[in-house]
């Protein structure tokens, strides 16, 4: 049991538990907070996999910006809790059953068919962060320049769309 394995097990436990917490918490604010924790653990997984830039992006964009947006909307609407009861009684047991089957299939696939138990090569946590980010940046601005620019257009469109959608129409207010 070396340090990495212990770290992995702890983080995995936290990730799964926070995901379940998000799933079951009745209050949307709690769910959002669980999710923040979950994202943070995933960010550490990224670091362990030698992807420091993605880890930082995960923390700033997901755990930071997106979740803040979520919390903001929850509080704006005051919709952290919904009244009990539902119109679809069979939905939950069916969903859980199907999810179990899906998980079983995934496990079967991972352990029986692929069997990739070989350890990952190269440095993990020990990676040269500056060099890794530099490599990623070069690829992004050379090979993937066009998709990168298209992404900016996508964000602009999303922004305009959000503004147009939430804008009150004339005479409505």
């Amino acid at each position: 049991m070396d340090f990495t394995l212990i770290l992995f097990i702890v983080l995995a436990a936290v990730a799964v538990l926070t995901a379940i917490g998000m799933l079951v918490s009745r209050n949307a604010v709690y769910a959002a907070l669980f999710l923040v924790l979950n994202f943070a653990t995933v960010a550490i997984f990224y670091l362990m996999l030698g992807a420091p830039f993605i880890a930082m992006a995960q923390v700033t964009v997901y755990a930071g910006a997106i979740m803040v947006l979520f919390l903001f909307v929850i509080m704006l609407l005051g919709a952290e809790k919904l009244p009990k009861g539902g119109v679809l009684p069979w939905q939950r047991p069916l969903a859980i059953g199907l999810a179990a089957v899906l998980l079983a299939e995934a496990g079967y696939l991972l352990f029986q068919r692929i069997q990739m138990t070989t350890e990952l090569a190269g440095p993990g946590l020990e990676v040269n962060s500056v060099e890794a980010v530099r490599t990623l940046g070069l690829a992004l601005f050379n090979q993937y320049l066009l998709p990168f620019e298209v992404t900016s257009v996508l964000l602009l469109v999303a922004m305009i769309g959000a503004i147009v959608l939430t804008k009150k129409e004339k005479g409505e207010a």
């Binding site: 679809l88 939905q91 069916l94 199907l98 999810a99 089957v101 899906l102 299939e105 696939l109």
Partner: peptide, 22 residues
Amino acid sequence: GFVRSYALAVLFGVVVILGYLL
């Protein structure tokens, strides 16, 4: 007309197709 029922149907489809492939 319930969105969640449709989502369930989608998941069902995914499970079945994955099962078939396996």
